[in-house]
């Protein structure tokens, strides 16, 4: 996997999302929001995807070592927790994947909410043009 390629993909997704949010049609705005949230998810994954080479799973046959370091040593560039005697970047960071999972679930909820809202706006106003939504101006 190429780190630069991923950065480029994220940048293009942000661009497409921003372009769609600036459209007049509500549905396109919503699609733009979803694309931006996907770009953010990719960004989170990229924060930890290239830092290790092993899968962060401890199998049952493996003995968990007792000399685990839980305190940071910033002078030596050690960020806890890690196993003593191993490289600091031995495992792929599992936390970012958990973060992305949470972010995906949340963006599902917000997207569902905003689609319902767009439907109700279409019912009330008879249009999906954002510029016609100006009863509150002034």
């Amino acid at each position: 996997m190429n780190n630069t390629l991923l950065s480029l993909v994220i940048a293009i997704l942000f661009g497409i999302g921003t372009f769609l949010i600036l459209r007049r049609d509500i549905v396109r705005v919503i699609i733009g929001l979803s694309i931006i949230s996907h770009a953010v998810n990719l960004l989170i994954v990229s924060a930890g995807a290239f830092s290790g080479k092993d899968v962060p799973i401890i199998t049952h046959n493996e003995v968990v070592p007792t000399n685990t370091i839980f305190s940071d040593s910033l002078k030596n560039g050690v960020l806890a927790p890690l196993l003593n005697g191993t490289e600091p970047t031995h495992f792929v960071d599992p936390l970012v994947q958990a973060l992305v999972l949470t972010a995906i679930v949340i963006s599902l909820a917000t997207t569902a909410m905003i689609i319902i809202l767009a439907y109700r706006i279409h019912e009330e106003y008879g249009t999906t043009d954002i510029q016609k939504l100006k009863r509150l101006w002034g």
């Binding site: 705005v29 929001l33 767009a118 109700r120 706006i121 009330e124 939504l133 009863r135 509150l136």
Partner: peptide, 12 residues
């Protein structure tokens, strides 16, 4: 309808 319009802005 006013409420919906305001909520739409708020949510986006």
């Amino acid at each position: 309808s006013d409420k919906l319009e305001a909520t739409f802005k708020y949510l986006i």
